[in-house]
């Protein structure tokens, strides 16, 4: 579903991704861990199409299409979803208007008819329940006055509304208390399916107790230096990133 080959990217003059290779198959959950500044969020941004990042090399193939050729909204309509690390407040834009346009943009692209008002409200109610959001939020402005936890739950709610094929969660767990973390993880787990893949970017192993990944990758200094099963996350928690770095350096030398 997703194939990243030797991806290099920079922002302004600073090279951040220095050759990332990653293959994700439908149904899989991949966790990407790494220390601060290793390039985790850059990878998420480049995949979603953020303009500030310049891709300087490599390829990204998504469902057989060149992802890097697509505008951010084309990627979204093709089924790529980014849950933001810092969700944006949109004063004056109501949740229902925002989601109606988003859902119908995606549906139109899939050749489906736009939802009627009744169908849309029903869908909103159903998906909001998934992350325990009050359905009255439809009248509120997007993320405006939302607590930190509400903002993150709102990202998962939007993901549920848009039903992407590839969901990238950029530090969706950071700053959440354990109750909110469980709710978010629960929402994600209910959306796991053989057709849908997840790229879960996190700084903390704790999230992976709730969203159990198939594969864990460790990103250090713009490269994936180690990949493994879910146990790798636990090992990282015990030994820290230095352990992986040392191992990686040793391998390079050998």
């Amino acid at each position: 579903m997703l194939e990243i080959k030797d991806l290099r990217a920079r922002i302004e003059d600073q090279e951040i991704l220095k050759g990332v290779n990653l293959t994700v198959k439908p149904g899989e959950v991949h966790a990407i861990m790494g220390p601060n500044g290793s390039g985790k969020s850059t990878l998420a941004s480049v995949l979603a199409g953020r303009e500030e990042y310049e891709v300087t090399g490599g390829e990204v193939w998504y469902d057989g299409k060149n992802l890097l050729d697509m505008e951010p909204d084309e990627r979204a309509r093709e089924g790529v979803f980014l849950a933001f690390q810092y969700p944006v407040e949109l004063p004056g834009v109501s949740m229902s208007n925002f989601l109606k346009q988003a859902v119908n943009a995606v549906r139109e692209h899939r050749g489906e008819a736009p939802l009627s008002a009744v169908e849309f409200l029903k869908l909103m109610k159903e998906k909001a329940a998934l992350v325990h959001l009050d359905p009255s939020l439809k009248r509120r402005a997007v993320n405006e006055g939302f607590s930190g936890g509400e903002k993150k739950r709102n990202e998962i709610f939007q993901m549920a509304m848009l039903e992407p094929k590839l969901a990238i969660l950029d530090e969706t767990d950071s700053g959440l208390d354990i109750d909110a973390l469980r709710i978010v993880a629960d929402g994600v787990n209910q959306m796991r399916s053989p057709e849908r893949a997840f790229l879960v970017i996190t700084h903390y192993q704790r999230l992976l107790d709730y969203i159990v990944p198939d594969i864990v990758h460790v990103l250090v200094d713009g490269r994936i230096v180690k990949s493994g099963g879910k146990d790798l996350a636990l090992k990282l928690e015990d030994l820290g990133y230095d352990w992986v770095k040392e191992q990686a350096d040793a391998e390079t030398l050998a």
Binding site: A48, E71, D73, V93
Partner: peptide
């Protein structure tokens, strides 16, 4: 706001749709 534009576009709205939505919100 460039970040608001990007947010809307990652939800499937075209550049024009996103701009329109933010401008209407601004006038609201």
């Amino acid at each position: 706001d460039a970040e608001a534009m990007f947010y809307l576009r990652t939800r499937g709205l075209t550049d024009g749709q996103a701009r329109r939505m933010l401008l209407l919100a601004f006038a609201r």
